[in-house]
Each structure stands twice: as structure tokens, then as C-alpha cells.
Amino acid sequence: MNSIVTVISNIIAIYRRELQSYFASPLAYGIATIFWLLASFLLIILVFGPQGLLEQSAFADQAGLQSAPLDLPYEFTQFYLGLLGSLAMFVLPALSMGLYTDERKQGTLELLATSPITNWAVALGKLLGVVTFFLTMVLPLLVLEALIVGASDPPFDLNLLFIGHLGLILMAAGVLSLGMFISSLTESTVLAAILTFAMVLVLFVLEGVASGLEGPLGEAISHLSLLKHYSDFTQGVFDLGGFVLFLSYAVLGLFLTAQSIEAFRFQRN
């Protein structure tokens, strides 16, 4: 019992330190700013821009096409969260790249490795920290969304938005965890970022690959695709398969990170 308390206390210590380092890092603020600017820009274009949702809807009204009315809230959530997901793919590698490379550069890995704390507790604390930071990056966007939701007629189904955002965070957790593993492999932050970005691209395009393949292999590969499961979430469907997949990516990343740090200590010279 006592040991569980210790482990939890350790995880919290790492978590708080990790979060604290994001909030003290100009780079993290820079990444967050770019993310906010792009996301709000996309949001505005999506709603008000040429061929935006409002224009489409006005056009539909004018043409008097009553037979197939646009479900605007639905269209909006799907497009907007889809864009946000793609945007996140660029941002997440930048968040995870420094998770372990910095520890190596500062020599603090030696402190962690000689303290009574397990590798996986460190990894879990770090993952929770970076996911929390991503969450705080998404939060301000909720203000913009609230404006649109408030002005919407017919009213929004809030479940739709909630499930979509849940999907976004879960997917981010999976990607960040794998990115953390990659950052544990190298001392170079830039290399970690590039490799993580490449991995994200591969996970993203898997669906394209899968659709070219027939039979069970294609199906299996398509199940690994981030995009496929994520788009289920953005359509307001709680996709249990996707939930399990994102969680599996996160656990896999944690496991590999703990292993690679252990192996690093054995091989280094």
C-alpha cells in the first residue's frame, strides 16, 4: 500500500515538473501561439469564408432546396475537428521531441536513473504532463467554439462536440506517447522531432495504403490508422475500437520508453 502511494507521489512529482517546464519554456508558448492562430483562422474561414458553411447554407436556402437540409452543427464539428486533428499532427511532434532528449542533455537522466523511482513512473508522469499541456492548448479554442455554438440555430448537440474533442485528446495521447519513445532514443531534439513527424505521417496515411490492399491485411492495417478512428470520433460516434487503439498506442509508447531507458543504461559508453 505504502509503495503504491510512493509511486503515485513520484508520478505526480514528475508530472508537475514536466508541466512546469512547459509553462517556463518560450518554445512551448511559441508552438501554442502558432497552434491558436492557425486553428482560429481555420475556424473563421470554415464558417465565414468563401464556400464556408454560412455561404453554403445561404446558397441552399436561396435555391430553395428543402429536400436535403444541411445539418450545419454536424458539418461544422466534422470539418472543424478534422482540421484541428491535422493541425495537431504538426504540433504534437514539437511537444514530444524534448521529453527525453532534454533530460539527456542536462544530465538529469542520471539523477532520475539513480533515484528510487521506476522508469515507467517517469514516463507516465511525463506523458500526463505533455497531454495536459496539449489540453491547455485546446482549451482557449473552446471560447471561439462557444460563440458559434451559442449563435447556432438549430441548437448544437453538445455531445457531438464533447466526443469529438475526446477523440482529439486521446489521439494526441497516443501520438505523444510514441513521440516520447522516439525522443528517448536520441540526444538530438531535432532528430526526435523529424522522426516523430515521419511516424505520424505513416500512421496517418496507413488508411490510404490499406484501401489499396484487399483482404484481411488491408483491413488490419486500416484498423491501425489514426485518421480512420479519429474521423469516427469527429462524427460524434464514440468508437470503442478507436478508443482502445489510441490507448494501446499510449501504453505501447510508455512501455517502449521504459525499456529503451533501461537499455540505454546498459549500452552506453
Partner: peptide, 8 residues
């Protein structure tokens, strides 16, 4: 090398 977190 002393193991320190520069931002703390």
C-alpha cells in the same frame, strides 16, 4: 555534470 533543470 550536476543534473539540473535550468528552468526551475
Amino acid at each position: 555534470t550536476p543534473p539540473l533543470y535550468p528552468d526551475m
